[in-house]
């Protein structure tokens, strides 16, 4: 029953969840994120919306796919992990879904006594939050790895340059030795 209600209200849940998420940005930014629809002029909007829609669809399923959940969470979190948010600010959007469901379906839930399925659903949202934490940490670790990777590449390039010089010096020495032998 709750699942049917959620399916019927999918679009307004997506819309409200997306809206709440956009409100975590400064006003000028959220205006832009709402207005510009071109996916390449406004990749943040496009990618986050894809993530929100995907997560909604997964949560509506009886058995969500962990891979799909992670992939949709990654879309949103990969962006928020590098933006100017604390970890809690970056991930708060997951909990917004609870607020949205209560707002959109509160009346129907009360009327139809759907408290138990709601509790189950909220537990699944909590699970999603735990997943979100893992995804966030994964992204942050990637940033550190990129940083280390860059330093390593520079170091490697310097070593290679040194090797090239050593090789050249060796070649010069060999040449000198050959020519002095020839002179003898």
């Amino acid at each position: 029953m709750l699942r049917d209600l959620l399916s019927r209200k999918r679009s307004s849940i997506v819309e409200k969840w997306f809206d709440l998420l956009l409100e975590t940005y400064p006003e000028d930014t959220s205006k832009f994120l709402r207005r510009e629809k071109d996916p390449f002029a406004n990749p943040v909007r496009n990618t986050i919306l894809q993530g929100i829609e995907g997560l909604c669809d997964e949560i509506l399923k009886e058995d969500e796919s962990p891979e799909a959940l992670n992939a949709f969470l990654d879309k949103i979190i990969r962006i928020r992990a590098v933006q100017d948010f604390s970890p809690s600010q970056a991930l708060a959007f997951v909990f917004f879904l609870k607020t949205v469901i209560r707002d959109v379906l509160g009346k129907e839930i009360r009327e139809n006594h759907l408290h138990e399925p709601l509790l189950l659903l909220e537990s699944r949202i909590d699970e999603m939050a735990l997943r979100a934490f893992d995804v966030y940490m994964g992204c942050r670790e990637e940033i550190y790895e990129l940083r280390v990777g860059e330093v390593k590449r520079q170091r490697e390039a310097a070593f290679r340059m040194l090797e090239r010089s050593e090789r050249a010096a060796k070649k010069r020495l060999e040449k000198q030795e050959t020519s002095s032998r020839d002179a003898d």
């Binding site: 708060a92 607020t99 408290h115």
Partner: peptide, 24 residues
């Protein structure tokens, strides 16, 4: 669970403010 209990919004239980300050 009563309907009143349902009115508790989860973010009220969270000890952080997720709205970034709107600075001039």
């Amino acid at each position: 669970m009563s309907s009143e209990e349902l009115d508790i919004k989860p973010e009220e239980l969270l000890d952080f403010d997720y709205d970034p300050p709107q600075k001039d």
